[in-house]
Design a protein around this nucleic acid. Structure first.
Lengths: 148, 148
DNA sequence: CGATACAATGATAATGACTTTCATTCTCAA
DNA sequence: TTGAGAATGAAAGTCATTATCATTGTATCG
């Protein structure tokens, strides 16, 4: 459950402006719904949290927000996309995914582990010739609500 | 590039039989194409490697192989599914994903890192009440072929 | 304070990966 | 050999997501 301050909204407006896009009311609603969730949310959850928001507008504005680097789409286990704030707005974290119901939660790991992850990423990068831009350490399992 | 021996094929036949399914010629072709690739392959790549294989048969048999635990579907960055052998047939590994072209390669990390990953997974599990069944440590970047 | 250019909206149609259907063919087991 | 049931492949269907387009909103310039 993240709450964004004014400077964050100013930064978001700037990123949109770079692509000649506006920070409209709908886009602000989307950003606030996503920030308030504090975990990746599906379109259905977004539509439920923003009554009256047409599905087509939700998808279109989500695309704009993704293009401008405000929102990120995260791949889950089911075939519903999920959306969260870009990493530099939400802070570095990873995910805990339920293989049964598809829900996703945020998880933060120890600095020691994160350092090991980063070093491993760099080792592979220099070895394989990739330019690594991101690492994902996601845990998949069964959430308490889905356990027998 | 993995080649499967006879005992692997026997094991695959057994897993299918548990669900009253048969290890047909098409299914064997699919398994061999996937094993030979040594990385997650898309439907397009599979169809290209198996001339004459109808798309509907490819999808249907892939589903059977997934249900019986022979093949695993891995989420990429584009909207094409990719398929690889189940972990106990291919060995534990992770992925190096190109954000530009969507290609995926296998990567194996040091035992020390794998141990740290496993311990982190267990720590989160006991803390959050999840039963963790899998961890994914995927590196996302730009592959040498896509670099400017 | 308009006027104008252009982005945003939302209902609807289209796209495309994937799934299902179904009549026919194949295959295992008795 | 034969019958039960699984597999096949062409075609139709599903469903999340994307594009279209006429209309509306909104910054900016004179």
């Amino acid at each position: 459950m993240t709450t964004l301050d004014d400077s964050a909204h100013t930064e978001i407006r700037l990123r949109l402006a770079r692509l000649d896009q506006r920070y409209t009311r709908l886009r602000r609603v989307l950003v606030e719904v996503i920030a308030a969730a504090g975990r990746p949310v599906s379109i259905l959850e977004i539509l439920a949290s923003a009554p009256g928001l047409p599905q087509s507008s939700a998808y279109r504005n989500l695309s704009s927000l993704i293009e401008s680097g405000v929102v990120r789409r995260v791949p889950g286990t089911d075939d519903h996309g999920r959306f969260e704030l870009a990493e530099d707005l939400a802070g570095h974290h990873h995910h805990l995914v339920c293989a049964r119901c598809g829900s996703v939660e945020d998880v933060r790991h120890s600095p020691a582990l994160e350092q090991a992850l980063g070093e491993a990423a760099q080792a592979v990068a220099s070895q394989q010739g990739y330019r690594i831009t991101e690492h994902r350490f996601d845990l998949v399992g069964v959430c308490p609500a889905c356990l027998p």
